Simulated scan of single mutants.
Amino acid sequence: MRLISALCAAALVLAGCVPVEDAANPTGTPPDAGDSVTQLGQLTVAKSGSMRGYSRERFPHWRDTGRNCDVRDSVLKRDGKNIKLSGCNVVAGRWVSAYDERTFTEPSGVDIDHMVPLANAWRSGADKWNDERRGDFANDLTRPQLRAVSASSNRAKGDQDPSQWKPANRDFWCEYAVDWIAVKHFWRLRVTTAEKAALSDMLDTCPAVRE
């Protein structure tokens, strides 16, 4: 992964390569709130684009991750505790949904949320990508783009941005904003004026920003 990122940084002009400033951090560790304020200021602000041509099939997921396992299984294993497997498939465990603090022991009650929803990404610039790059976005295990949450909170969120929907768990607002900004910054996606204002308000809940 480090070699690929380095090659992409060296050839930034090629479509789909990692931006130079992000190539130095291939682990995808979310930035602190101070970094997020800077990154938010660097995002392009524009009106939301059209949904013309959109479908979830334009963002192929979930990708195979080996041994009859896919990206969904990988996120369930990463985000859960006391995981039980049948082969490579996750069949039980314990998950706490950061969005609403609900706890689950059956994977059927858990959805894998795209932090920046696919439809939002489409309206924010992903409509100009090819399907391979959209697949990279939809299966991104490196950035904070995928999270195991309650099915009900994921479906309530839908394709809404932070100006339209926020997690019921206000203690998670800081991390939610940090993660949303990190994803949009890496993938060079736009934000609307209302979205940017909401993200700024959510960053104000971060201890480092309040201080």
Rank of each mutant, 00 (worst) to 15 (best):
S124G: 08
C69L: 00
C206N: 04
V209Y: 08
C69N: 05
T44R: 13
E195G: 12
R94H: 12
L43C: 09
A119V: 04
E195A: 11
A177Q: 05
Y99I: 09
H61M: 00
L76D: 06
F104K: 05
W95E: 09
R190Y: 03
Y54W: 13
E106V: 11
R188E: 07
D179T: 00
S163H: 03
R155Y: 00
G125C: 12
E195S: 10
R123F: 01
G28P: 08
C88S: 15
K47P: 06
D136Y: 08
E195W: 03
N120G: 12
E132F: 10
L14A: 12
G53N: 06
D131P: 09
A6P: 00
V91S: 08
S108Y: 10
D100Y: 03
E132K: 15
S124V: 02
A208L: 08
R188H: 05
D179M: 01
C174R: 02
G93N: 08
H185T: 01
G49W: 05
A197L: 06
S50F: 02
H114C: 11
A6E: 07
N25Y: 14
D140W: 02
V75W: 01
K196P: 01
W165Y: 03
A126T: 04
E57G: 14
D22N: 14
A126L: 09
R143K: 11
H114V: 04
A11L: 11
G16Y: 07
R56I: 04
D179G: 01
S50I: 01
F186P: 00
W173E: 08
S124Q: 09
A177D: 06
V37A: 10
S97R: 06
W62Y: 13
H61T: 02
A198H: 02
N130E: 09
I181S: 13
E211T: 07
A10S: 11
R188S: 10
N82C: 04
A156H: 00
A151R: 13
D201T: 12
L203V: 06
R63V: 00
V45S: 14
R134I: 07
P31Q: 11
C88H: 09
F59Y: 12
W122N: 06
L85C: 05
D113E: 14
G28E: 10
I83P: 07
V178I: 15
K47E: 15
A138T: 05
F172C: 00
N89H: 15
W187S: 11
V20R: 15
N130K: 13
A168E: 12
A6F: 07
D179E: 13
D136N: 14
W95Q: 05
V96F: 02
D64Y: 07
P60Y: 03
K157Y: 00
F137I: 02
D79A: 08
A119R: 15
K184C: 03
A119T: 06
L3P: 01
T205K: 12
D79M: 07
V91K: 15
A168V: 06
N68D: 14
G158F: 00
A151G: 13
A121G: 11
P107M: 12
G16P: 06
R134K: 13
D159T: 04
N154E: 04
L199Y: 06
L203I: 05
D111W: 03
T142F: 04
F186Y: 14
D111K: 08
G28Q: 10
V20Q: 14
T27K: 13
G34F: 07
